[in-house]
Structures are given as C-alpha cells and as structure tokens.
C-alpha cells in the first residue's frame, strides 16, 4: 500500500489582467474582456467624432462590419482630469471601446474582492471589484459598465442616420478594423 501523499491546497485560480493608466490612476481589466488594443491613430478616418448632450464621455462612433460601437473616454467616465489618450481597448462582448493613456503591465490576480457595500453609487456599476496587488489596491473595471442600456439606446437613436450612411459603405466601416494588431 502506498502511503497517502500529503494533501495539497488547491492552487488559487489566476485571472490574467491588464493594468492600464488613465490620468495617473491605475485600473485593471480582465485580459479576456479586451479583444484588441490599438493606437488612437487608428481612429482617424475610421471613427466619427460625436457629441451627445449629457454623454460627453462618448467621443466617437464607429462601424465595424455589421456592428457599430462607441468609443468612450475613460477619464471622463471616471470623472478624472482630461489626459491625452494613447490607446484604445476594444472590449469584447460589448459595443464599447475605451480610450486610455497607456498600459502599465500585464499580470494576474488570484483574488477579486467584491466592492465593499459602503460604495453605494454609480461605482457599483463601474467595477467588478477590487484586487490587492503588490501591496496596492486596484479597481477591476466591468467592461459592460461603461454604457448603460439606456445610454446605448439613446446613442443608437441619435446615431441612426449615421448607421444608415455607414451601412451603405462597408469599406469605410472596416477601415478601423484593419488598422491595428489583434491581441
């Protein structure tokens, strides 16, 4: 009979995350929810600058194949001072892309703590939770939290003429997709 091997504690499941910077503040986002990372230059010509009253954080509208999406200033979304973005995160399973200043690093987290209930306003929709990394605490953003369904509805209604226009010119819609490197 073989002696029982000492029981091992199961290794905590790690989730790959991207730490990114917006106006000097560091946030984390799951790598799995970022479809592509592009330079802001890729927006020129491919995305239409928009200005929707009450939704100043939504800066561009773009068409990609059959799908349209909105490019959001992370600084304005979080109420941070404006800063020139350098990158766009195309967020998977959403119709949003995010303007950020830069990537700090890629790493992994093993524990995500729910946002304490003391935080009881809009931030509950912004974050999946908080994680402690290297003796620091970082908010982990919720990709679907950048636009509420109501905001999306409002934007779609305002952009419906543009949708019709770009729909007739698939080349223009795809130019954004061709401009960057898929992750």
């Amino acid at each position: 009979m073989r002696p029982l091997s000492p029981s091992k504690a199961p290794a905590p499941r790690a989730e790959q995350i991207i730490l990114f910077r917006v106006s000097g503040q560091i946030f984390a986002v799951s790598s799995a929810s970022v479809q592509e990372v592009r330079g802001v230059d890729s927006l020129s010509g491919a995305a239409k600058k928009i200005s929707q009253p009450g939704l100043g954080k939504v800066q561009y509208f773009a068409q990609r194949g059959d799908n349209s999406f909105y490019v959001i200033s992370a600084a304005m979304h979080f109420g941070l001072p404006p800063s020139p973005p350098a990158l766009v995160f195309m967020l998977r399973r959403t119709r949003t892309a995010l303007l950020v200043d830069g990537i700090e690093k890629m790493t992994s987290m093993t524990r995500l703590q729910a946002l304490p209930r003391s935080f009881c306003h809009e931030e509950r929709g912004w974050y999946r939770g908080l994680t402690a990394l290297d003796q620091s605490v970082l908010p982990v953003v919720k990709p679907e939290g950048f636009l509420t369904p109501d905001e999306m509805f409002l934007l779609d209604a305002a952009m419906s003429p543009a949708l019709a226009d770009t729909g007739s010119d698939p080349e223009a819609g795809d130019s954004f997709a061709d401009a960057g490197v898929e992750q």
Binding site: F119, H121, W126
Partner: peptide, 24 residues
Amino acid sequence: FRFPHRTAEVEGVILRRGRIVPVC
C-alpha cells in the same frame, strides 16, 4: 488607496489582514 467613485462619505480603502476595508 484611492480610486474614482461617487460615494462622498468613503475616502478610499485600506488593506488589513488581507481584507480591503473602506475608510469612512
């Protein structure tokens, strides 16, 4: 540790015994 939020009564969080604790 501070990060953007809209709950004015909370100024941030501290790390204590592996837990993240809001500071009010």
